[in-house]
Design a protein around this nucleic acid. Structure first.
Lengths: 125, 125
DNA sequence: GTTCGTTGTATCCTGTCGGACATATCGCCG
DNA sequence: CGGCGATATGTCCGACAGGATACAACGAAC
């Protein structure tokens, strides 16, 4: 009674494309979230199995695109430095999560319908 | 009153991930639409600037994932062959478009808010 | 049975993304 | 003042998705 279709393997991923300025998807959102929680770009990257190089470049991209930086970082200091979300950064993350929630809800019917059209596999996994 | 922010360069792309069975995003949806309109995989691919190889592989992927084929193709014949959407294919396309419409509507507030947070560029492009 | 345009499939090639690695810099703290 | 840990940034390289190309099979029309 554990693994029925309680958790159908369906996920809706969103990707906002702001012209050629920026693309914002699950990757950057998760990164923001982890930076906020861990206080460090490198720690956030490690937690996501992502190289620091890449994590930093994503942050750079976002900071460049938004009016104000979403992540503020400091070098040196007690733990060698760190990074934290600015109010704008928290706002971006909040809006993205809200967007995920609302779209998932609004499209639930279609998602279920599409899922139902998938072929029945003996071992669906 | 023509080009204000009437058409802000913001687009919400959706990507449905059905576990490891299939991922369905704008590419496959557009491809389905063009196959339905043009009656040919190669013509649809050309219209999208996509190689036949790729177009065909996407169709193959979808046909394998759904219970019934979404695209049915024939070789030889009057025009050498062709392809058309099955009822299932039309249904998949319809559901995906509905999903796009509903999510865009449901997330309009967040999208506008995020767009408003972008930096003001002299040439926003 | 020749022609024709498409499907179906293999083989090769290349552009690109991101990881790995190498440094430099910074600023507390012992 | 030297070490530490994190940011900041450049260079090199391998993996791989997808384009280019080539070719066989097909089936109706003529």
């Amino acid at each position: 009674m554990a693994d029925r279709d309680d958790i159908p393997p369906v996920r809706l991923k969103l990707r906002l494309v702001f012209g050629d300025r920026l693309t914002l998807g699950p990757g950057k959102a998760d990164l923001l979230e982890r930076i906020g929680a861990l206080g460090s770009i490198s720690a956030a990257g490690r937690a996501m199995g992502m190289s620091y190089r890449r994590a930093w470049s994503l942050v750079e991209e976002m900071n460049a695109a938004f009016g104000h930086a979403v992540v503020q970082s400091t070098r040196g200091g007690p733990q060698g430095g760190g990074a934290h979300l600015t109010p704008e950064g928290r706002q971006v993350l909040t809006l993205y999560r809200e967007l995920e929630d609302r779209t998932a809800e609004a499209g639930a019917d279609q998602i279920v319908a599409l899922r139902g059209m998938l072929g029945d596999m003996p071992q669906g996994k």
